[in-house]
Computed example of a mutant assay.
Amino acid sequence: MPFALALTVVLALLSLFQLALVLGAPIGRFAWGGQHRVLPARLRIGSAVSILIYALIDLIAWDRVGAVDVFPEPFSEVAMWVVFGYFVLGIGMNAISRSKPERYTMVPVCIVLAALSFVIATGAGELTPAV
């Protein structure tokens, strides 16, 4: 369960970052390729959707470790591996960004998210029933 909690904390911080982008904060060099200081409307929508995706990922993770029971077990097992793949892809996508601030910030964040997702996907972070 500590891995799901750590994932939640990182995703919550990313959600705050994305919310700041949605609200027009001039930190666009850290996201979406770093081409805009303040994001245009279409990328602000993308940031809003990202917040929803983070919430879904968090729910899948907590379901996978057994803290909540929202999805059938086979779904959360497969979905957590998909989440792991998503963050591995994020490592690559952020690594090729033209924006140095994005590369230097988001690659390490994605590495942490991928590592946490991997541990959760393998089942190492599951709650064990009391005997």
Results as ranks from 00 to 15, higher is better:
Val49His: 06
Ser50Pro: 02
Val68Ile: 15
Met1Gly: 09
Leu19Lys: 02
Pro72Arg: 00
Val65Met: 07
Lys100Asp: 11
Gly125Val: 01
Leu5His: 01
Tyr104Ala: 10
Val82Gln: 02
Leu14His: 09
Ala121Gly: 09
Val22Trp: 10
Ser15Phe: 08
Val131Thr: 11
Val78Cys: 01
Thr122Leu: 14
Pro26Leu: 03
Gly28Arg: 11
Ser117His: 02
Phe30Thr: 14
Ile60Gly: 01
Leu21Ser: 03
Leu21Thr: 10
Gly85His: 10
Gly66Cys: 06
Ser76Asn: 10
Ala41Asn: 01
Tyr104His: 01
Pro40His: 08
Ala31Ile: 14
Ala115Arg: 08
Gly125Asp: 13
Ala115Gln: 08
Pro101Thr: 13
Ile57Gln: 10
Ile53Ala: 14
Arg37Met: 10
Gln18Ser: 12
Pro72Leu: 05
Pro101Trp: 07
Glu73Gln: 11
Ala41Met: 04
Ala12Gly: 15
Ala6Pro: 03
Val22Gly: 08
Trp81Met: 09
Arg42Thr: 12
Leu39Gly: 07
Leu56Asn: 00
Pro2Phe: 09
Thr122Phe: 11
Pro72Tyr: 01
Val107His: 10
Met1His: 06
Ser99Arg: 04
Ile120Val: 13
Ile91Pro: 00
Gln35Arg: 12
Val131Phe: 13
Val83Asn: 05
Cys110Phe: 00
Leu21Ala: 03
Leu52Gly: 13
Thr122Met: 15
Trp62His: 15
Val107Tyr: 04
Leu56His: 00
Leu127Asn: 10
Ser50Met: 07
Leu56Val: 14
Gly33Leu: 00
Leu21Pro: 02
Glu102Cys: 00
Pro129Ile: 00
Leu13Ile: 15
Gly90Met: 09
Ala115Trp: 05
Ile96Ala: 07
Leu113Val: 07
Arg42Gln: 10
Gly24Leu: 08
Ile96Val: 15
Leu5Ala: 13
Ala4Gly: 15
Cys110Gln: 09
Leu116Lys: 04
Asp63Ala: 03
Val131Trp: 12
Ile60Tyr: 00
Val109Tyr: 03
Val9Thr: 15
Val68Gln: 06
Arg103Tyr: 06
Ile53Glu: 02
Ser50Lys: 00
Gly92His: 08
Val107Ile: 11
Glu102Asn: 04
Ser97Thr: 13
Val82Asn: 07
Leu5Tyr: 08
Gly34Ile: 12
Pro108His: 02
His36Met: 01
Ala114Trp: 08
Val83Gln: 02
Thr105Lys: 06
Ala4Thr: 11
Trp62Gly: 06
Gln35Cys: 00
Phe87Asn: 09
Leu113Lys: 13
Gly34Met: 06
Leu59His: 01
Arg44Gly: 07
Ser97Tyr: 14
Ala12His: 02
Leu52Glu: 04
Asn94Thr: 01
Met80His: 03
Ala79Gln: 04
Leu7Thr: 11
Gly24Cys: 08
Val70Asn: 05
Phe30Val: 09
Thr122Tyr: 05
Pro72Thr: 09
Leu59Phe: 00
Leu43His: 09
Asp69Phe: 09
Arg44Leu: 03
Ala4Ser: 14
Asp63Asn: 14
Thr105Trp: 11
Val22Lys: 05
Val22Tyr: 05
Ala48Trp: 05
Gly66Phe: 01
Glu77Ile: 08
Trp81Arg: 09
Val109Ser: 02
Pro72Glu: 00
Arg103Cys: 04
Val49Arg: 11
Phe71Leu: 15
Ala114Val: 13
Phe17His: 14
Leu127Phe: 15
Ser76Tyr: 05
Leu39Lys: 03
Glu73Trp: 03
Leu113Phe: 01
